[in-house]
Structure formats: structure tokens, C-alpha cells
Simulated assay, not measured.
Amino acid sequence: MKLTVGLGSVDEYIRFSEAGADEFFCGYVPYSWTQKYDTMMPLNRREVLCSNVQLGAFSELEILSSMIRDYQRPVHLTFNSLFYLPEQYPEIAKIMKACMCLGFQSYIIADPALILYLREHNIDCEIHLSGETGEVNSRMVDFFQQFSLKRVIFHRKNNFDDMKAVIDAEKSHGGLRSRTEFEAFVLNEMCQFAGAFCNSFHCDELGHLCRVSYWLEPLRESCGDSSLRQLHPSPPAASPQTSLPHTPDLPDGYLCGATGCGLCALYRLREIGITHLKLVGRGNYNDYMEQDIRILRRALTLLEQSTSEEDFKDTLRRTLFSYKCSKVCYYL
């Protein structure tokens, strides 16, 4: 399995490559787009200017393309909005053509209409179906394969059985489809929302909804009528259960997987046919990201040396989690 890492700036590319990243994904939003559409019509749902979350200048892409030639770690560009205005599709196509001239051939796309537009206009790029697209099942992937997908990215809420069913269905078709790549989340940014159903603007001006404290309670019967169920939105008076993990008081403030971890699931992910692991972290502290990459690379080494799932989990816990486990699991 290969390690796909979020890239927030050009400066991180060499550092993260040397730490063990196999490839990257990053956003590119030209300032001309920001001037014209502001944050209300985002290009990739990361309209952030005050920190290193995406690239904003074509010159940065030029620098990055030269680094890619040296380090041979590909970068996939994200166009992750769920939809665009009709007049925006030609603009996006123009941006992508300019990027392709620099060697950027693969794009993470969520909007089905954009995928259709690109194919109808003979833009021969590699398409990674974004996890932001929505529910992923074998019939959905079967439909999108008319556009020749290079990779399917599972969203945060898919379980092992869901992913295995999709992968098995693709392999059963044979040919090029049997070589479709599959990517799953493994570290950071676990969220109560599936991307397709998140209505938050990820921008400088507004707080992200995923950072707002919330409580979870089971639905339960009300008034003795099993057909009537109510949700209690108010947290209990004692020991409220917030879903947002807080980083423990460790010496350097770092805890691997503090906001989402799937390391213990690596054995199962490999068994069901996952080919790429997503390490999210655009805008995260560079030191933390580097540690994440090194730990995940070490975990993959332990996976190769393990004889069984239990052997892998036991070695992982003793070797990498002897200090602390975040207990914020992507895959229970």
C-alpha cells in the first residue's frame, strides 16, 4: 500500500518525501478565482489564505513540477467542490489544461458534471473519484467507470464490508477495471460528517462546523409509543461526551492519530484490496505531519513482517503506541 499525503505548500514536498511519502494531493486555487468568486463558490472546499493549505500561484506549480521530476513523487490536484456554476466549467478546464502542461495529470474530482464535461471535451486526465462525491457502492462505481476512473477514494464512513464489495466487483470485471486503485483514510481529520453532506465553508472567515462541540445520544422511545422516537440534543449534566478529541499533555503536544486513526486497521485494509492510504493534514503543523508519515511508514514495515492480524496489532501497540493511543478510531 502506498502512502498519499496532504500537501499544504511547496516547502513541504521535499521534507515529506524524505520522511517516506509516496505521493501527494494538494489544492490549487488561482488568485483570479478567489477575486471573482470569493469563498462562496469554492474551487476545492479549502478556501484558506492565512495558512498553508493550498497553492495559490502558478509559479508555485512550476516549482513543484520541477521537484516532482527530481523526487518522482506524483502530486494529485483537488477540485473537490460538490458542484459548480455552468459558466465555471470552461474556466476550470482552462486551469486544468495549464496544469497538465506542467505535468500534473491526475485530479481528484467530486462533481459528476465536471467529470462529464472533461470527458466530453476530450481532456485526457486521470480522474480520482473523490470521497466527497457521496455514498460509494459497486453500482455507483460501475456507473462512473464509463469515464475511466484511475482511482476510487472511499469516504470516512465506509466500513470494511462496503469497501470489499466495491473492490471485489471491480476485480470481477477484469481488464483495465481490475487495475483500478482504491484509497482509504488512515490518519487525521475524522469528522462527524461525510464530505458530501457537510455544509461548512472551510475558509478563514468562518469556523468549521466539524470544530463545533457536539454530543451524541441514541434515539429512544418516547411516550411509550415505539413509532415515536426523539433525539435529545442537550448533553447530560454530568460528563458530556464531545466527539472532538483533545491532544493529551505530551512533551511536544503531539499524539499520532489524535484526530482520527486507522493504523490498527492496516492489516484488514490490505486484505480487502486497498492500494493507497490517505494521510490528511493540509494546514497541519509540519513537524506533526512529518512524525505522522514516519510512524505510518514504520507501521507498514511492521505489517510486512507480521504473520497474522493479531501479531500485527500486538506488535504495533507495543512498538508504536507504548506511550499513548488516541482511541479515535476510523475503523472499529
Rank of each mutant, 00 (worst) to 15 (best):
P233D: 09
P90D: 04
S51Q: 12
G103D: 03
K313T: 15
R73A: 11
L187T: 14
A93I: 02
S326Y: 00
G257E: 05
R15C: 07
C261F: 07
G27N: 03
W33F: 04
C191R: 12
V10Y: 00
I272E: 07
M289R: 12
V75P: 01
Y37T: 00
C210F: 11
P236L: 03
D11I: 14
F154E: 09
A237T: 15
H155Y: 02
N286I: 03
Y117W: 07
R270C: 06
C198A: 11
F321S: 08
F58L: 02
G273P: 01
H232N: 10
P248F: 04
V10R: 06
W33M: 02
Y288V: 13
I123F: 12
Y288P: 05
S130T: 12
F201K: 13
A57E: 13
E12Q: 13
F58D: 01
A19T: 11
I167T: 10
S227A: 15
Y267P: 00
A258P: 00
L82T: 14
N286A: 14
A265T: 04
K278H: 01
I293M: 03
A238D: 14
L61E: 03
L300Q: 14
E18A: 07
F144A: 04
E120T: 15
G20V: 03
F24R: 08
E62G: 10
I153G: 00
P235S: 13
L209Y: 10
E120V: 13
V75C: 09
C198E: 10
F25L: 10
P86G: 08
G6M: 05
L244H: 14
V48C: 02
C256N: 06
M96Y: 11
F147I: 10
D225S: 12
